[in-house]
Amino acid sequence: MSTVPKRFEILVVPAHVEDRGGASVKDTAVRAAVVEATGERGNSGYPRYAGHGIVADIDPETRTVEAILLDGNELDYGLTALALDSTDG
């Protein structure tokens, strides 16, 4: 059985960017935050993470964001959320 990571870094980025002009995905994020495991499972069935106004259900094996709320709202059309391993402690 795999362990559930304690935290992830969430990046909210434009969904359809063809040329970042050499910038990294992190540099083009419109929002970024470290979220921590809440110990709960979301409606999607995946572990729930929260922090800095973001609540997300993340598949810990594929790092797929299955559900997300930003400040209580759904993600705006044209944006996508990515979950990265957190480099924060």
Rank of each mutant, 00 (worst) to 15 (best):
A56S: 11
V12N: 08
G42Q: 02
Y77N: 14
L82F: 06
G22N: 10
D85I: 10
V55K: 07
A33W: 04
R7N: 12
D71L: 05
T80E: 11
P14F: 12
A50G: 04
P14A: 10
H52T: 10
M1D: 11
D71I: 00
F8T: 07
R31E: 08
H16R: 09
E61P: 00
V65M: 04
V12W: 01
E40M: 11
D71E: 11
Y77R: 14
A81P: 12
G51Q: 08
A81C: 03
E66V: 09
L84F: 14
G89Q: 11
R7W: 00
I54N: 00
T3N: 10
S2D: 12
L69P: 00
Y46H: 10
V17A: 07
V55D: 05
L11E: 07
F8E: 05
D59C: 09
V30T: 13
V35I: 11
T64C: 11
P5F: 11
G45K: 01
E40W: 10
Y46V: 00
G51N: 05
T64M: 14
D57W: 06
V30F: 12
E18S: 13
V4Q: 03
S2G: 00
K6I: 08
D85A: 13
A32H: 10
L84Q: 12
Y49M: 02
V12Y: 03
K6G: 15
N43R: 07
A32N: 13
T38W: 04
V35W: 01
V4H: 00
V4D: 06
V55S: 05
A33V: 09
K26V: 15
L70D: 02
G72C: 13
D88N: 03
G53Q: 07
G42W: 09
D27Y: 12
L70G: 06
L82R: 01
E74R: 05
E36F: 12
E36I: 03
V35P: 01
V17P: 01
I68E: 02
T80A: 14
T38G: 02
T87Y: 09
D76Y: 00
A29I: 14
A32L: 07
T62R: 13
V34S: 08
V12S: 03
M1T: 13
I68L: 12
L75G: 04
T64W: 14
V65G: 03
A37D: 08
R41V: 06
F8P: 01
R20Q: 09
V4E: 06
D57E: 14
T3L: 13
A32I: 05
P60K: 04
V25W: 07
E9K: 07
A37V: 05
D71R: 07
E74A: 10
E36G: 04
L79A: 06
D59K: 05
S86Q: 10
E40G: 04
T64V: 15
A50E: 13
G72Q: 14
A67H: 02
T28M: 15
G45H: 04
K26D: 15
T28C: 11
R41F: 15
D57M: 04
G39Q: 09
G21W: 15
P60Q: 08
G53K: 11
E18C: 03
